[in-house]
Computed example of a mutant assay.
Amino acid sequence: MNRHNLHISINTMATKILIENRKAIGLEVIKNNRKVQVYANKEVILSGGAINSPVLLMLSGVGPKDHLHNLGIPVVADLPVGNNLQDHMMFPMKYNINSSISMNTQTFQAQIPKVQYALFKTGIYSGSGLEGDLMDKIPNRDPSEPDYPDYQMILYTVAQDEGFLDYGLDMNIKPEVTKLLKTRAKNNEFTHTLVGLHPKSRGTIRLQSTDPFDPPLIDPYYLENPYDIKVMIAAIRKSQQIMNTKVFKQLDGTLVRQDFSGICDKVNFDTDEYWECFIRYFTVTIYHPVSTCRMGAITDPSAVVDPELRVKGILNLRVADASVMRNEPSGNTNAPCIMIGEKAADLIRGNDTVFDFRKQIAKLKL
């Protein structure tokens, strides 16, 4: 915060990249309800994320020509900004158990665990409730597919009881459906959260208007590609396989069914059609949007930035965030975003800060 070359402007909204003769020269921002222009000595680096970076580029005339024309925005560069949106989705499989080992609203509200953590940094507050992660591939997968895991299973000991459904992770479920789910919520349960890692469905980010304060039009096209359903069903079958093991049988792990009148109650239980209905009904984002300003070769028609993160056709403008990823990674996006920031800094400064590390691992078989 005390660096002489770092200035943080609060209460400020970037509304436009200033571009002259296909060269980025600064930003237009709204600060404390006043329009201000800020100029760059060298480069403008955009790190707005997979939603806001394409929005700011399109507001500045960098984006799909037809979309910009429809809004009356002069086209500076016709690029596929806002295309190729990918995101991880999650689907919960809840199980009741015969043991009181779950974290639940009652245990979180008790005083002893709070005192235990305050004094000894142990107990339920010393963890997240995430007990394990499993990465796996679907059976009979296409051998031409890259050799990466197709889905992730996150094992939580946190019970999705009434308190969780009211105040826990916002699953964007209608209140009337939440009311139904509460009728089957227990204190002693745990969850397998299933995540499709490499969706084939592709969405878009578009401007709603030329007003930078209007939220963008986000159409993720979730589950449009049948492959994404296939992956989630394979993850469900793996969850069932785990529940059939000796350890979980001892806990009497029993699936908490979520089929109610009008909700997937017309299809036969445990068929692929049954689970597809639930996937389409209850699957929600895990907030990992990527690839809306995709990186690629200059000749790649799907790319917005080149391999050095420079916006194609615009001088002195780079993007450094999740939007430049080619595709969704096999896991969370936080660490890859940090890597992108570190790599961008090296590219801008012309440094190779990982040379010694690469030298150390050169002989390893990765």
Rank of each mutant, 00 (worst) to 15 (best):
S261M: 09
D219E: 14
S60F: 02
R237Y: 10
D78F: 01
H7Y: 11
V290E: 06
A14L: 04
I112V: 11
L57A: 04
K16N: 13
S60M: 08
N332L: 14
I112K: 14
L46W: 05
Y167A: 13
R358N: 15
I205G: 00
V76P: 01
N172D: 10
D211N: 15
T193E: 12
P226L: 02
K343C: 07
T122S: 14
V354R: 12
F120P: 00
E145T: 09
A362D: 10
F278Q: 15
S261C: 06
Q240C: 02
P54L: 04
G253C: 04
D161I: 06
N52W: 06
G82Q: 00
I229S: 10
N32I: 03
T204E: 00
Q111G: 01
I298Y: 08
V354T: 12
I236D: 05
M93Q: 13
H88Y: 06
K42A: 10
N332P: 09
D228S: 04
K363D: 14
G26V: 01
L317F: 03
Q258L: 12
N188T: 13
D170R: 11
M243T: 09
E131A: 12
I138H: 03
T333L: 11
N332C: 10
Q250F: 09
V354P: 01
I51P: 04
R202F: 00
N188R: 11
K137R: 12
D306S: 11
L57S: 01
S60L: 07
K365P: 00
I25C: 01
S209D: 06
V354K: 14
M1V: 12
V354W: 14
P80N: 04
A159F: 09
E189F: 04
P336C: 09
K182F: 04
E342Q: 14
F91H: 13
V290T: 15
P92N: 07
G132S: 10
V324Y: 05
K35E: 14
G331F: 11
E328S: 15
N96Q: 13
D87F: 11
Q360V: 11
R349K: 15
M135Y: 15
L59P: 04
G129F: 07
N104C: 06
R202S: 14
F355K: 15
A110W: 09
G123I: 08
Q360W: 09
V36P: 10
D166I: 09
T299F: 10
E145D: 14
I205T: 01
I361D: 08
L6F: 12
L6S: 10
S302W: 04
Q250T: 12
K174P: 05
L251D: 07
T12V: 07
N41L: 07
V305Y: 01
D166E: 13
D166G: 00
Y287P: 05
C293R: 02
P226W: 03
K246Y: 08
D306Q: 06
A234R: 03
K174Y: 06
F260V: 03
